[in-house]
Design a protein around this nucleic acid. Structure first.
Length: 808
RNA sequence: GCGGGAGUGGCGGAACGGUAGACGCGUAAGCUUCAGGAGCUUAUGUCCGCAAGGACGUGAGGGUUCAAAUCCCUCCUUCCGCACCA
């Protein structure tokens, strides 16, 4: 092969040049109508924290590669990007550094857009969505009002999660192990009046994932989060208080004859009403103490149970007995009705509580059908009902329904279903979010702001002190308004919406972010929706992905959408760990990609992010291997610019090329970027030792395969070869199955499962021929010495295993 | 505690029940270069052996099978989710 001085691979110059060229030719703009089928490829948009860090690259570079691949496969791919731009970090920056959240956010977005450009991401920026702009959040307000009209947005008092550090309430989903999702501060419960979205109305539908290609893991997590339980809701009357009753939910109505006491959560409204005067001081002290505990303290699993007797009694309507009513914080105010019937014989928690306080433990479910005097531990399994009046002798499985029906007949209960899922608390006592479009009027009460007065714009001049309450409450010009109904002075709601509201519908806004007559351009939406592929971090398995599904279904029922699920296919990438923790600005362990981009080029870093391992697994960040992929790109560069030389067609090389096309195609379709890159590396190694037409075609195919991974390098080579147009507009290479199959294979010869020889034989050798070849192997013969052949197992094109027995 | 992943060379990781360790990092030797860097070639699981070759080897132990990293059982470690949900 002729040696010729080849220009060095200089990524920075190449990448800058093509970046400009692609901008000039609007290469990344996607039309809504084309002769190709539309494909909406969505990836979760970032919070504008200031930098596209290595963790972001891990999410976006492979997603961009997948979107580019689908383009080459003949799809008209929409790959938009935007910013989830409201949120508490901007506000904290304002408090700490006296920068207005809007200015801080704008500065960060400008930098991050530039970083996206340098990455080479094929984003259609005409469609950018920024959630903190009034043009966007007015549609949050519109959606709120539509949900309000339907009864799906309501204001109510409930024990809510309060983060003392962020000084705001949090949704259940934002409390991780009793701590604030954002700042890790232990959360406390507070009774507050707040706005909720009625996600529980969709609990059953959210449990169905029909037609969705979503990871099992996410479906399981959402299913568990929703937590559907079947049982009965029953009520015991309160002694001496006609008309008052304690309602509770149970999954074990069959154990009702063992309900020897009742327990209320400390927050239960009946506690104050029914407590006997003599017990009042103790009960109040207990309730007060529970109120001041963090959720972590209250729910510590190993903690000894505590409680106090209210001195009041309820009547077990099945046994007819009076049973004491206790207050204990092991009963959760937020689940079921906030009260339980305690069946100590058949519930571990009730058992521990009854033992500690000397309450009666009465067996009513017997595993063997016999009555036992005392129990060492709660028996929670199924069995036969005993000491259960007319139900004695009934199997517990049947007893559940029978007792519930009997309760219905007597008017003291009914079969019921309860969910762990709570309604979505959307009020936040923060500034940097969407104002809630409600006005409070002394005369008219709670009044929705009319649609034609939207958006309610966030006032710019606000004092950021970081101290108590909603910042908007201190802005007189914002708070004071007139009632839309009666025109008298009134006050605005001063809370803002949870930012997960913003991200629950942004995929619709991308289609036409400028439209000002609707939240979405439906004509465009009909061409793209629902999303064909969604990618993003597994950390959003519950939060964002559940809200997004709920909002889709709610908008559907409002007549605004025509499909049941927002995204048909979901692919989660794993997490990039650095210093033992997820990489994020707020954790202060961010690694910047910029130095690697400067030193090796964006193509190298893109490839490296994808080469770290399986995308779904995440990785510990360690850049020490980046040289390897850089060397590979250097080799491709050299291959691309060197003369292939003369020579005959090389069947082995042709096979390698077609096999690699097949392998990379399969891997990309399944998001196996790491093995696709390994296959391309193998091909480049093989091509270096080839010449002639096989090499020429191989280099061309390799460069096309590489195009979605390394868009700059491949475009430059394409251009230098004098090819017309962009490589990214070319069709994905195809393979000939006949050539992709090998001509010769290595046949492993085993004797009793141990490898004794390797034979190179033509592919497709028949079983008898393979068997004969193996038996003729001198090494196999040597291993067979002194033994008889029992049988021969042949796996065509793979191996021959000669099974022996001792010569008799 | 419950549910779900995952344990493979010095490292990241490959392996339809059929050649364990592809590809890459690192390391070593050699070539090339004025030099720095880079590039190229070869070797590189462990042990025994001068070699040919052999034995062992996928967290531990058992099982199924002609054949197990892969399937089954028990256990250990680790990651993730849920965590007093009645």
């Amino acid at each position: 092969m002729k040696k010729r001085k080849i220009e060095r691979y200089a990524p920075s110059a190449i990448e800058a040049m093509w970046r400009d060229e692609w901008a000039r030719t609007r290469a990344h703009e996607t039309p809504d109508v084309s002769d190709k089928p539309n494909f909406y490829f969505l990836t979760m948009f970032p919070y504008p924290s200031g930098d596209i860090h290595v963790g972001h690259w891990y999410a976006f570079a492979p997603a961009d590669c997948a979107a580019r691949y689908l383009r080459m496969r003949g799809h008209n791919v929409l790959f938009p990007m935007g910013f989830d731009a409201f949120g508490i970090n901007a506000e904290n920056a304002a408090i700490d550094r006296k920068i207005h959240p809007a200015a801080w956010t704008e500065k960060n977005m400008a930098h991050m857009r530039d970083q996206f450009h340098r990455m080479g991401a094929a984003i259609d920026w005409r469609r950018e969505v920024v959630t903190c702009y009034p043009e966007y959040y007015r549609w949050n307000q519109w959606m709120f009002l539509r949900l309000y009209e339907k009864g799906l947005a309501y204001r109510g008092e409930a024990p809510v999660n309060w983060c003392p550090r962020d000084e705001t309430v949090l949704a259940n989903e934002q409390v991780i192990a009793g701590r604030c999702e954002r700042c890790d501060t232990p959360v406390v419960k507070r009774l507050m009046t707040q706005w909720f979205f009625k996600i529980t109305a969709y609990a059953d539908e959210l449990l169905r994932f029909d037609g969705l290609d979503w990871p099992e893991r996410v479906r399981v997590m959402q299913t568990n989060w929703i937590g559907r339980s079947e049982g009965a809701e029953l009520a015991f009357p309160i002694e001496g208080r006609p008309g008052e009753e304690i309602r509770f939910f149970t999954t074990r109505p069959d154990t009702i004859y063992g309900a020897t006491f009742v327990v209320l959560a400390p927050e239960h409204p009946l506690v104050a009403k029914i407590t006997a005067p003599a017990r009042r001081a103790d009960v109040e002290r207990y309730v007060e103490r529970a109120r001041n505990m963090t959720e972590i303290e209250r729910t510590a699993a190993e903690r000894e149970k505590t409680g106090v007797d209210t001195g009041a009694f309820a009547r077990n309507v099945f046994t007819g007995e009076r049973v004491p009513v206790w207050v204990a914080d092991y009963v959760l105010a937020t689940y079921g009705t906030g009260a339980i019937m305690a069946v100590p014989a058949h519930d571990e928690r009730d058992f521990a509580f009854a033992q500690k306080y000397g309450l009666e433990i009465r067996e009513v479910i017997s595993p063997d059908g016999k009555e036992h005097a005392a129990l060492d531990a709660a028996y929670v399994g199924e069995g036969v009902m005993v000491r259960s009046g007319p139900f004695a002798g009934t199997r517990s499985e049947e007893g559940k329904g029978a007792v519930a029906e009997e309760a219905r007949r007597r008017g003291v209960g009914a079969p019921a279903v309860t969910y762990r899922l709570r309604d979505w608390l959307i009020s936040r006592q923060r500034y940097w979010g969407t104002p809630i479009p409600i006005v409070y009027c002394d005369a008219c009460g709670q009044v929705p702001v009319p649609y034609d007065q939207l958006p309610i714009v966030l006032p710019r001049d606000v004092e950021f002190t970081g101290r108590g309450g909603s910042p908007l409450a201190h802005v007189a010009s914002f708070v004071n308004t007139t009632c839309p109904r009666c025109g008298k002075p009134a006050k605005r709601d001063t809370d803002t919406m949870d930012t997960f509201v913003d991200s629950s519908w942004y995929m619709y806004r991308y289609l036409d972010p400028k439209i000002d007559t609707a939240f979405m351009n439906k004509a465009v939406g009909r061409r793209w929706l629902p999303v064909a592929q969604y990618t993003g971090g597994i950390e959003h398995a519950i939060l964002h992905l559940l809200y997004m599904r709920f909002v889709c279904k709610a908008l559907r029922d409002l007549g605004e959408l025509w499909f049941d699920e927002p995204a048909l296919r979901l692919q989660n990438q794993g997490t990039i760990i650095f210093g033992g923790r997820k990489m994020s600005k707020s954790r202060g362990n961010v690694q910047t990609p910029d130095e690697y981009v400067a030193k090796y080029g964006a193509d190298t870093l893109r490839l490296f992010m994808m080469f770290l391992g399986p995308w779904t697994e995440g990785a510990d960040w360690d850049a020490s291997g980046i040289e390897g992929v850089h060397r590979f790109l250097n080799r491709v560069w050299t291959l691309g610019l060197s003369e292939p030389g003369d020579g005959p067609r090389d069947r082995a090389i042709d096979h390698a090329v077609h096999h690699t096309v097949e392998k990379v195609t399969e891997d990309l379709a399944a998001y196996r970027f790491n093995t696709a890159i390994a296959a391309m590396m193998e091909l480049s190694n093989a091509l270096q030792h080839a010449s002639g037409p096989s090499r020429r075609e191989g280099v061309r195919a390799l460069t096309l395969l590489l195009a979605p991974f390394a868009p700059y390098l491949s475009e430059e080579l394409w251009h230098r070869w004098g090819q017309a147009g962009s490589i990214h507009a070319q069709a994905w290479p195809t393979f000939d199955p006949a050539l992709a199959a090998p001509e010769e294979v290595t046949l492993v010869v085993q004797v009793d499962g141990k490898v004794r020889d390797r034979l190179t034989v033509p592919a497709g050798l028949s079983k008898p021929a393979a068997s004969d070849a193996a038996l003729a192997s001198p090494r196999a013969k040597a291993a067979l010495d002194g033994r008889d052949v029992d049988r021969v197992v042949v796996v065509p094109d793979r191996l021959v295993n000669i099974v022996t027995r001792r010569r008799s």
